[in-house]
């Protein structure tokens, strides 16, 4: 992957804050990353880390009390955040589609599956699609044609999720954002849905942002990973590099906390408690829970290149990679 690649989506300095009576919560704070043509980027983090907020910022769908504070989101060179509402509407879905969290439960129970897909296409193009187009979409996501006239309750969870993928690709978008697209499914069904997404991605050459919390699924599916903690991207790297040698202590903890199915070993427990998001610590966002926190961590920690293609927001990344950083015990509660 050394050849220069086209950047499809360029996010710079994106900040989305939520207003609360006692101050702003910095849900997504100064996020910057590139999405290359045809690649899948994983955006991981725990609940509240700002991954879903970041995507609503990208789609400009932040609703009150949230607001986009700063940043730019360029899709094929056009800054979505600077567009007029009407122009933005045309870009959304036709170029940038979302498979939202719990998408399968967002289907309308009183409408036939085919009508709901036709609705999406009509809303964004003004034209009613022919029946053949809908059957073609079903085929792409591995669904039988007979569900055309069925209602959502007649389908299983995995089938409904694939209907939502069909909606996502209905207008041949450049970018699909899949927010926890498989997380409510049983493992076998999850594998089938993940397989469907990969197939569709390769067939259409579309770029994908996969949001999730499951490092196992990320290892299976994505080309690069961006790790978020409390609103900040703390590391971005190719998936092989991230798992082989994570440079940020939080990435390392996330990877180590995945229980193995091949080796029975002592559990790794991480202590510490996250700061109040209205009042983040000065400097590194992770210092309260970081086993390697040091005085210099009170300085701001921008993302910087540690190795080619690997960026981390940690002043001790080199020591951590070299194994020379001393860890400390962290008290819980």
């Amino acid at each position: 992957m050394t050849e220069p690649r086209n950047v499809v989506l360029k996010v710079r300095g994106l900040s989305v804050f939520y207003a609360t009576p006692t101050g702003d919560v910095r849900a997504t704070d100064d996020a910057s990353f590139d999405l290359y043509e045809g690649e899948t980027l994983g955006l991981v983090g725990e609940s509240g880390s700002g991954k879903t907020t970041a995507t609503s910022g990208i789609l400009r769908m932040v609703s009150s009390p949230g607001r986009i504070v700063a940043g730019s989101v360029e899709l094929d060179g056009v800054d979505l955040l600077a567009l007029k509402e009407e122009d933005l509407r045309r870009q959304r879905w036709s170029k940038l589609a979302l498979i939202p969290q719990g998408a399968m439960n967002s289907l309308n129970p009183t409408m036939k599956i085919s009508a709901q897909i036709a609705d999406v296409i009509r809303t964004h193009t003004g034209k009613t699609p022919p029946r053949d187009r809908i059957l073609e979409l079903f085929q792409m996501v591995g669904l039988p044609g007979r569900i055309h006239d069925m209602y959502p309750h007649e389908l299983s969870g995995g089938m409904k999720q694939r209907v939502c993928i069909a909606m996502g690709i209905a207008l041949n978008p450049r970018v699909i954002i899949a927010d926890e697209a498989t997380s409510a499914l049983d493992v076998v069904v999850q594998r089938v849905v993940a397989q469907t997404m990969a197939k569709v991605r390769d067939a259409l050459g579309v770029s994908m942002i996969m949001i999730g919390h499951d490092m196992g699924l990320m290892a299976q599916m994505v080309d690069r990973i961006a790790v978020m903690y409390s609103g900040k991207i703390v590391e971005i790297a190719r998936v092989a590099d991230m798992f082989a040698r994570p440079a940020h202590p939080y990435s390392k903890i996330l990877i180590d906390s995945v229980p193995s199915l091949t080796q029975r070993q002592a559990l790794r427990i991480t202590g510490g408690i996250t700061h109040d998001p209205r009042n983040p610590p000065k400097g590194c966002i992770f210092q309260l829970r970081c086993p390697y926190a040091a005085p210099q961590c009170r300085e701001p920690q921008p993302l910087r290149e540690i190795n080619p293609g690997q960026l981390a927001a940690c002043c001790r990344a080199e020591e951590i990679l070299a194994g020379t950083a001393q860890a400390r015990e962290i008290a819980d509660a």
């Binding site: 299983s156 089938v192 490092m215 290892a219 299976q220 092989a240 995945v258």
Partner: peptide, 19 residues
């Protein structure tokens, strides 16, 4: 057990399955 996503990018799912 074969479908549990392993946190190891060098050991990805092999083969396709159908429901």
């Amino acid at each position: 057990i074969d479908s549990v996503p392993q946190a190891d990018p060098t050991r990805r799912w092999q083969g396709e399955i159908e429901l």
